[in-house]
C-alpha cells in the first residue's frame, strides 16, 4: 500500500490530467447487476471494491458521494484548502457507477453493498455528523463516504516518516502548513483533505506521538 512516496508530485499532477483507465470488468454488462450466485457475487464485490479504491486513488478523492452529487469536492468543507488545488478539477464521479458507453449503472442499493464490503475491510466509512454541503446526511447511511485508499493509520505513518525525514520532531507546525505549505510539497499528504488529516493526526495523538492544540481555523500540531 505505501509505495514509493517520492514520485508523488508528478503522479498527482498527471493524475488529474490523464483519465482513469477502467478495468475490463467495467465494460462487462453483468458487472452492473447484482449476481445471484454467492461465489460470483463475492468476486463481483471484490472487483468493485478494488475499482472504487483505484478510481479514488487516481483522482485523489477522499470523500465520495454515492449519488454522484458534484457538491462533494474534496475540499468542500475544508476552509483551509481555499486554493482548492486538484479539488477544483473534480471529475464527474457518476461515471464510476454508471458506464454510459454500454448504458449500465449500478443501483444505489448495490453501491451501498460495495461500500459495506469496503467498510468491513476498513477501507470506507460513512461521513458522520454534519456534512455542510451533503444535506441530510445521517450517521449510518448518508450519501457521503470516506474512501480510504489510504487509511488514517497509513496517512499517519506517512506524516510521521515525513516529520522524521525532515527532522521536525519537537517542532510545532500548523495544519495549514502540513496540507498547503511549501515544506510538504512533494509529500503524499500535500493537499490532503483537512478533516482526513486530522483523523490521521489523532491517530498519532493516541500513540503519544503528537499533540494538537489551537482553534478551529488555526490548528497547530506538535510532534514528539
Amino acid at each position: 500500500m505505501t509505495t514509493s512516496p517520492p514520485n508523488d508530485p508528478s503522479s498527482s499532477s498527471s493524475s488529474s490530467s490523464s483519465p482513469f483507465s477502467f478495468p475490463p470488468e467495467y465494460s462487462f454488462p453483468p458487472f452492473f447487476t447484482r449476481q445471484t450466485n454467492l461465489t460470483t457475487h463475492h468476486a463481483q464485490l471484490t472487483k468493485w471494491s478494488s475499482l472504487v479504491l483505484a478510481y479514488c486513488r487516481h483522482y485523489r478523492i477522499f470523500k465520495l458521494s454515492l449519488s454522484g452529487n458534484p457538491t462533494t469536492t474534496t475540499n468542500a468543507d475544508a476552509p483551509v484548502g481555499g486554493g482548492g488545488g486538484e479539488g477544483g478539477a473534480e471529475p464527474d464521479t457518476t461515471e464510476l457507477f454508471h458506464n454510459r458507453r454500454i448504458n449500465r449503472r449500478l443501483s444505489l442499493a448495490d453501491i451501498r453493498e460495495v461500500i459495506d464490503f469496503l467498510r468491513r475491510d476498513g477501507r470506507a466509512e460513512y461521513v458522520s455528523g454534519a456534512a455542510p454541503s451533503g444535506g441530510g446526511a445521517e450517521g449510518g447511511g448518508g450519501d457521503l463516504v470516506w474512501i480510504y485508499w489510504r487509511t488514517p493509520e497509513e496517512w499517519a505513518s506517512l506524516v510521521e516518516s515525513w516529520v522524521d525525514a525532515t527532522g521536525q520532531r519537537g517542532s510545532v507546525l500548523t495544519v495549514y502548513e502540513l496540507v498547503e505549505g511549501e515544506g510538504t510539497r512533494g509529500s503524499e499528504f500535500h493537499g490532503l483533505n483537512q478533516e482526513l488529516l486530522l483523523k490521521a493526526l489523532n491517530v498519532l495523538v493516541k500513540r503519544g506521538k503528537a499533540q494538537i492544540f489551537g482553534q478551529e481555523d488555526s490548528l497547530g500540531v506538535k510532534f514528539f
Binding site: F28, P29, P30, F31, F32, T33, Q35, T36, N37, T39, T40, Q44, N103, R104, R105
Partner: peptide, 16 residues
C-alpha cells in the same frame, strides 16, 4: 449460473 459459470445482466430488455 448456479455453477458460477455465467453472469446475469438484468439491465437489458431480456436478461442476458
Amino acid at each position: 449460473m448456479g455453477e458460477g459459470m455465467l453472469w446475469v445482466d438484468k439491465q437489458s430488455d431480456e436478461w442476458e
